[in-house]
């Protein structure tokens, strides 16, 4: 059995046209682990909810400006990787063929370079395992 798996997200409140999943490592959702890192920080949780709202909107095929939802390019991975932004919070996701959008994890403003590097490596590992 592989290290990575996908679960249907329970963090997006409403049904969407494109299915949304969360990436799990050893059975644990990486997004949920990120959320659980900030148990008593109301501001951060509020912005995580804002970023989830952005993912919900774009998964219903509505458009948003690049400052809210942008394509991360130049990574050489054979899929589209996105960043959803609300305030200081960023959520990272990718499009998985015949599946939908997969939320990888989150990060904070100011740490994007390292976060994106780590997210891209995680996606590569997931893709390699799926081959």
């Amino acid at each position: 059995m592989g290290k990575y798996s996908l679960i249907h997200t329970e963090n997006i409140p409403n049904p969407t046209k494109i299915d949304i999943w969360e990436l799990c490592k050893k059975g644990k959702s990486l997004l949920q682990m990120f959320i659980d890192e900030h148990p008593n920080d109301d501001l951060i949780f509020d912005k995580i909810a804002g970023a989830l709202s952005i993912i919900e909107i774009t998964s219903n095929l509505l458009r948003l400006p690049k400052t809210k939802f942008r394509l991360i390019d130049g990574h050489g991975i054979n899929c589209k990787v996105y960043e959803a932004k609300s305030g200081i919070i960023r959520l990272y996701l990718f499009h998985e063929e015949n599946t939908g959008k997969v939320i990888v994890t989150g990060g904070k403003k100011g740490n994007q370079k390292e976060d994106i590097k780590s997210v891209l490596q995680t996606i590569k590992d997931f893709k390699n395992e799926s081959k």
Partner: peptide, 19 residues
């Protein structure tokens, strides 16, 4: 989980801004 997300103002602000 849904209730926690729906209780956050930013969820609704981003939603209305998006529409």
């Amino acid at each position: 989980k849904r209730e926690q997300i729906l209780n956050q103002p930013s969820y609704w602000i981003e939603n209305i801004n998006g529409l």
